[in-house]
């Protein structure tokens, strides 16, 4: 719903195949090869993680892999910069709580 279908200068954007992936177990869609963060933003997902100390929501900030605010757990690996990591079919993306998944974070308590 946030995709630019027809841009006055750039016209169309080259996108890969439409693929599905998981966000916290829920099936989502995006285009293969685009950053994971872009597919999430298009589906209205803005919160990528909750911080370790204050449990505050964070999402895309710099979009070029510098600020590391958009990191999530991807296929089990935490701290993956979703704004520069290309989406692949079947990826398992999880919201990051501190540096853990929700389940792991809850087990700590």
């Amino acid at each position: 719903m946030y995709r630019i279908e027809n841009h006055p200068i750039l016209h169309q954007f080259d996108k890969g195949q439409r693929v599905s992936f998981l966000l916290d177990g829920k099936e989502m869609e995006g285009f293969a090869g685009e950053p994971i963060a872009i597919a999430l933003r298009n589906s209205g997902v803005l919160v990528h993680r909750y911080t370790a100390k204050r449990a505050e929501p964070r999402g895309i900030f710099c979009a070029i892999g510098r600020c590391n605010d958009c990191v999530m757990i991807v296929d089990g690996t935490p701290n993956v910069r979703t704004c520069v990591t290309p989406l692949q079919a079947g990826m398992n993306v999880e919201t990051q709580y501190g540096i853990q998944s929700r389940g792991a974070a809850e087990n700590n308590d």
């Binding site: 946030y2 995709r3 630019i4 872009i38 803005l46 900030f61 979009a63 605010d69 704004c83």
Partner: peptide, 24 residues
């Protein structure tokens, strides 16, 4: 300012002009 939706101008450009997505 740390809320999702606060972004750099460069991020806006990257999202819309490279990836074809409106930042909001």
């Amino acid at each position: 300012w740390t809320l999702p939706g606060v972004i750099g101008a460069g991020a806006a450009q990257t999202m819309m002009n490279i990836h074809g997505l409106r930042p909001g």
